[in-house]
Design a protein around this nucleic acid. Structure first.
Lengths: 148, 148
DNA sequence: TATTGTTATACTCTATAACTATA
DNA sequence: TATAGTTATAGAGTATAACAATA
C-alpha cells in the first residue's frame, strides 16, 4: 500500500523547513525573522500593525522581531508620513538584495522540483496541487469560522 | 503566470499546521507534544534516546516533553528491562485511543484531498508528489552532508 | 473612544554544558 | 571510557494585559 498523500506533503513541509534553515545558517537569521523579511519584500514598507496581520502574529511579537532585525541591520524603522503613532518598517538595501537573491533560488528550486516529475505528468500535478490547496484552504477557513 | 509549485506546497504546509493546531485546541497539547505522541504511536515504547533521534531533537528536550506529557496523563515512564540507566516511555491507554482516532482522521483527510483532484489526474499527482518528495529528500540530505 | 506601539510577564520549544548513575 | 537521563542556564517565538501617545 502506498503512503498517504498527506504524509508525503507533511514530509515535503519538513524538508522545506530544513532546506531553509540550512540556507540561513550562520547569518544570524531565524525562521520567524526570515518570514518577516519575506513579507516586507512582498508588501513594501509597512506599519507594524500591518505586519502583524500579514504574519498572523500579535503586534507585540512584531516589536521583538523588528527590534532584532533593526539590530542586525536588515530593516529600518521610519516615521509614518501621516500618522505620528505609527512607524514604517522597510528593508535596508542590503537586506533587499538578499531577499531578491532568495527569490531567485526559490524559482530555481521550483524548476528543479518540477523537473523531477515525468514530463507527461507535469500538467496534472500542477492542476492537482492547485486543487488540493484550494480545497484545504476552504476546509481550514470554514473550521476557523465555526464558533466551536 | 501560475504561482510557483513551491509556494503552493508551502501554503499547504501552513494550512496543515493550522488544521492540526485547531484539532488540539483546548486539549493542552502543543505541536511538539503531539509530534512526540505520534512518534510513540508508530514506534511503540521507546527510550528517550530513541525518541530524541526520531524527533531530531536533543535528549534534554525530550525530558521536558515527556515531563509535560506525563503530567497530563498522556504517557508513562517505565523501567527498561535490561538497562537500569534507561526508561521506556509509552502511551497511556487513553492517549493511545486519541492517537488511533487521529490516525483515522488523517486517512479521512487524505481521501478528501485526493477527492478534490480530477479523477484522471490522480495517478499522475500521486506519482508526481512521490517524485518531488524523493528529489527534495536527496537535495536536503546531500546539503546536510556537505562539510560546508 | 479607538488605534499604534511598547513595557511587563509568562509559557513553550529549543540548545549547550556539566553532572549522576549505570554499562 | 561511554551512554542514559537530568539539572542548570540561556535564547527565540509566542501570547495576554496594561499603558502611553496619538487619532
Amino acid at each position: 500500500m502506498q503512503p498517504l498523500l498527506v504524509d508525503r506533503l507533511l514530509q515535503i513541509a519538513d524538508l522545506f523547513q530544513k532546506d531553509m534553515a540550512r540556507a540561513f545558517e550562520g547569518t544570524g537569521l531565524t525562521p520567524a525573522r526570515v518570514h518577516l523579511l519575506w513579507v516586507l519584500q512582498h508588501a513594501g514598507p509597512s506599519t507594524q500593525q500591518a505586519l502583524a496581520r500579514l504574519c498572523e502574529v500579535t503586534p507585540r511579537n512584531i516589536t521583538g522581531l523588528v527590534d532584532a532585525l533593526e539590530g542586525s541591520g536588515h530593516v529600518r524603522r521610519g516615521p509614518h508620513p501621516s500618522d505620528r503613532r505609527a512607524v514604517l518598517v522597510e528593508l535596508t538595501p542590503e537586506a533587499s538584495e538578499t531577499m531578491a537573491r532568495m527569490q531567485e533560488e526559490h524559482a530555481a528550486l521550483d524548476e528543479t522540483l518540477l523537473g523531477a516529475v515525468a514530463p507527461e505528468d507535469r500538467a496534472a500535478v500542477q492542476r492537482g496541487i492547485a486543487a488540493i490547496t484550494a480545497h484545504l484552504e476552504t476546509l481550514v477557513t470554514e473550521a476557523a469560522e465555526t464558533p466551536r
